[in-house]
């Protein structure tokens, strides 16, 4: 036998392996081309439906009109998008700070949990649309009022997920920490916090979407007072003026923001867990 038999030359590929490689390649390409194709066909169908039936643009604008609105109204839409982004991101950051701090307080003291958890639930289950007008009355700044709205919706998933996560540490590991005389702080930092991380990140993904929803609702309710300049108030205003091109343009941008938030939070989650967590494991199908 010579060394070349065992693979110093090009690897021998049998029919089955070639077939599997071909299928993998097709899958990789399809993952991007199929959704793009669906999108293109939908736009085409939309365009044809609007032009062939001569639908008036104040009932349903065609994709070309929406596209040109995005371009033409960019000077209105872009600042509006910045405002809504600022609102959403700030609300999300405050939700993270508040949710995590409260979760830590809840797990460190059962008295704190007993006293405040019911109120966190009440805050969560009360529809934000019902609170927004009140906030508008009591809080002078429309931006702060809207921020409060978005924060209320976003913070609960962070609080509840992080609380469960902090309590989810393996029991044997907890015993191990006891045996080695760990302090409270060591337990929190070295055991509870890492155990809570996947739960927190799950909550973050939900909270990101909810912060945007909260911001949009707040703009609908509070922005009407004439102070709001976000995308949602732009959308509402366009609907009053039957400017459906701009309405759809605003809608698409809001939707794009939602996708961006989801992508970023998913990426953060992946980067933080990829080394050790089951959810980030790559497996052969």
């Amino acid at each position: 036998m010579t060394a070349t038999d065992t693979g110093t030359t090009a690897p021998i590929i049998d029919a089955e392996e070639a077939e599997r490689a071909r299928r993998d390649k097709i899958n990789r390409i399809a993952k991007w081309t199929l959704p793009s194709l669906v999108m293109a066909l939908t736009l085409l169908a939309w365009h044809l439906y609007v032009t062939l039936n001569e639908i008036p643009h104040y009932v349903l604008p065609g994709p070309l009109l929406v596209g040109s609105s995005v371009v033409e109204d960019w000077s209105i839409l872009w600042p509006a998008m910045l405002t809504t982004s600022r609102l959403t991101i700030l609300a999300l950051i405050l939700a993270i700070l508040g949710g995590v701090a409260l979760a830590v307080a809840f797990t460190q003291s059962k008295w704190a949990e007993m006293s405040f958890f019911p109120y966190a639930v009440i805050l969560q289950v009360t529809p934000v649309v019902a609170i927004a007008p009140l906030l508008q009355i009591y809080v002078e700044s429309a931006f702060v009022a809207a921020l409060l709205c978005a924060w209320i919706v976003a913070f609960f998933p962070i609080l509840s997920n992080t609380t469960i996560g902090l309590k989810s540490a393996d029991h044997n590991l907890q015993d191990l920490f006891s045996i080695y005389g760990a302090t409270r702080w060591q337990r929190l930092r070295l055991l509870a916090a890492p155990s809570a991380l996947p739960f927190f990140l799950g909550g973050l993904k939900i909270a990101g979407g909810l912060a945007l929803i909260g911001a949009v609702v707040a703009e609908f309710v509070i922005g009407r007072a004439g102070t709001g300049l976000g995308l949602a108030s732009t959308l509402l205003e366009a609907s009053y003026r039957f400017n459906f091109g701009r309405l759809y343009a605003a809608l698409i941008l809001i939707s794009a923001m939602g996708v961006a938030i989801f992508a970023v939070t998913s990426l953060i989650s992946h980067l933080m867990l990829r080394k050790w967590h089951e959810s980030a494991l790559k497996r052969d199908a």
Binding site: L173, L176, F177, Y180, G181, A182, Q186, L190, L191, P194, L197, K275, W276, H277
Partner: peptide, 17 residues
């Protein structure tokens, strides 16, 4: 601890002290 390397896991008893 799944989030820690083998060496970090073995370090734990010392680390807690």
């Amino acid at each position: 601890m799944p989030w820690a390397t083998v060496a970090q896991n073995v370090w734990l008893p010392f680390r807690l002290k």
